[in-house]
Design a protein around this nucleic acid. Structure first.
Lengths: 115, 115
DNA sequence: TCTAATACATAGATTTACTATGTATTTAGA
DNA sequence: TCTAAATACATAGTAAATCTATGTATTAGA
């Protein structure tokens, strides 16, 4: 059962940043495969989502790319800029905060009718 | 620090369903206030988001409304339909699943360079 | 009296990820 | 050897969700 794509909204760029924080550098296709494997296929980053997201992060100065050729095939390795490293911590914290708040909201059983 | 609005995408209808599951019935304004208080102001449901979401859930047959007048002022109480109750369990489970997957994805430290 | 809170509603803008499509190289299998 | 699948990038246009902004109206409190 794949996760609804709508749920992913707002989290994609944070996920990318976080994965780059954990590695020296990664390229686009590698990111799609890593997410696919580590979530057991429950989250699939589509190319139509990933590449525009990478381009935006680069345009915002949070990541930089370096083209590397494997034979004739290009890879664009991305890594965090200093600005991106700062931004990553902020985004990850905000996302974790959000996850906890939502979890509390939908798992707690409020006592209604007591007021 | 309020939670980024983008993160909320895809979760709003599940939150609404879940809150209705926990109570006999709730009206729109009550939902905004409940979420605001129980998340300490970190999540603010805007009217422009909430009311269309409620209308959509009703159009989909997951909730039903009953107008009640307090003096001359209308309240529309919403409650789950049988179909809505089934759907709620599914949505909540999917959302919790999603929260856990994302949390794992951004908190685990993969060992890179070992292959 | 007048402002804030209560309570609904919707139009249009914005954001984000998607589908669909395209190009090209490399690998593995029939 | 040929062909399909995998690798690897890219973008145009679509769809979905929430937001901002605005509107109406009632009620409570300073």
């Amino acid at each position: 059962m794949a996760i609804s794509t709508e749920l992913l909204k707002g989290t994609l760029s944070t996920i990318i940043l976080r994965l780059l924080e954990n590695s020296e550098r990664m390229y686009g296709y590698e990111l799609t495969q890593y997410v696919k494997e580590s979530t057991k296929g429950k989250i699939l980053l589509k190319e139509g989502s990933l590449y525009p997201a990478l381009h935006k992060l680069e345009a915002d100065g949070l990541i930089v790319s370096e083209a590397v050729y494997i034979g004739k095939r290009m890879r664009k390795y991305y890594s965090l800029t200093p600005k991106g490293k700062v931004s990553t911590k902020k985004s990850v914290n905000e996302l974790l905060d959000f996850l906890n708040i939502i979890e509390q909201l939908i798992t707690t059983n409020p006592e209604y009718g007591t007021t």
